[in-house]
Amino acid sequence: MLERIGQLADPIGAIIGFLLTIMVLSYIIGDNFLFRLAISIFIGVASGYAAVLILYSVLWHQVLVPLSQAISTGNTDNLLTYATHVVPAVILGIWMLTKVSPRLSRGGTPVLAFLTGVGAATVIAGAVRGTIFPQIGASSNLLNIQAAPSELNGLVVWFLNGLIILVGTVTTLIYFQFGVKRQEEGVPVQRPVILEYLSTAGQVFIVVTMGVLFTGVYIATLSALIDRVHFLWETIIRFF
C-alpha cells in the first residue's frame, strides 16, 4: 500500500505543482483569487514545514536523541559532552520562553542580550577577518606582477582588468567621502575639484554595479520562469 502511494506521490505532486504554477502565473492578468490562494497555501505550508523541521531536526535530533543515546549507552564522556554542549543551550532556550508572557518578558532580556551580543561579535569578527582584510589585500595585489599571466594577450587583459578594478575601488571610496571641513559659516561645503571628478567616476561605477545586480536578479527570475514553463510542458507531455 505504501509503495503504491509512493508511486502515486510523484504524479500527484506534479499535478499539484502544475496547478499551483498556473495559479501563480495568473497574476499576469492582475491580482485575483487564484493567485492569493496559491500564496496563502505557500505561506501556510512553509510555516508548518518550518515548525515541524525545528521540532524534528532540532529538539528531537539535537536535544532528545543525544540524551537518550547517552543514557542508553551509559557513556560518561557522552553525558559530559551533552552536559557542556546541550544543557546550557536548553537552559537558555527555556529561559527565552519568558518572552512569550508580557509579564515575564523582561526576564528573557538577558538571554536576548547574550544572543545579540554574541551574534554581533561573531558577525563583526567574521566580516573583518573574512571580507575587509582579505579584500583589501586582494585589491592591493591586483597588479601584482607575480600573479600576472605569461602570455601577452593575457597580460594585457590582466592589466586592464586590474586597472579597472583598482580605479573603480578608489573612485567609489572617494564618492563616499563625506568628511569635508566647513571653512566659513553659510558657505556651501564643496570638496576639491579633483575629488569631485573622481567622485563622479565612482558614481559611474556604482551605477554600473547596481545595473549588474539588477541584471542578475532579472536573469534569476527569468530562469525561474523558464523552469516553470518547462515543468508545465513536461507535465502536459507526461499526462497527455
Partner: peptide, 19 residues
C-alpha cells in the same frame, strides 16, 4: 550560486589569494 549572487561572490573568487 545563482546569477543574482554572482556579482557579490566573484570578488572572493578573483581575490589573490582566492577565498
Amino acid at each position: 550560486t545563482s546569477s543574482q549572487a554572482e556579482p557579490l561572490i566573484r570578488p572572493y573568487y578573483q581575490a589573490y589569494p582566492a577565498q
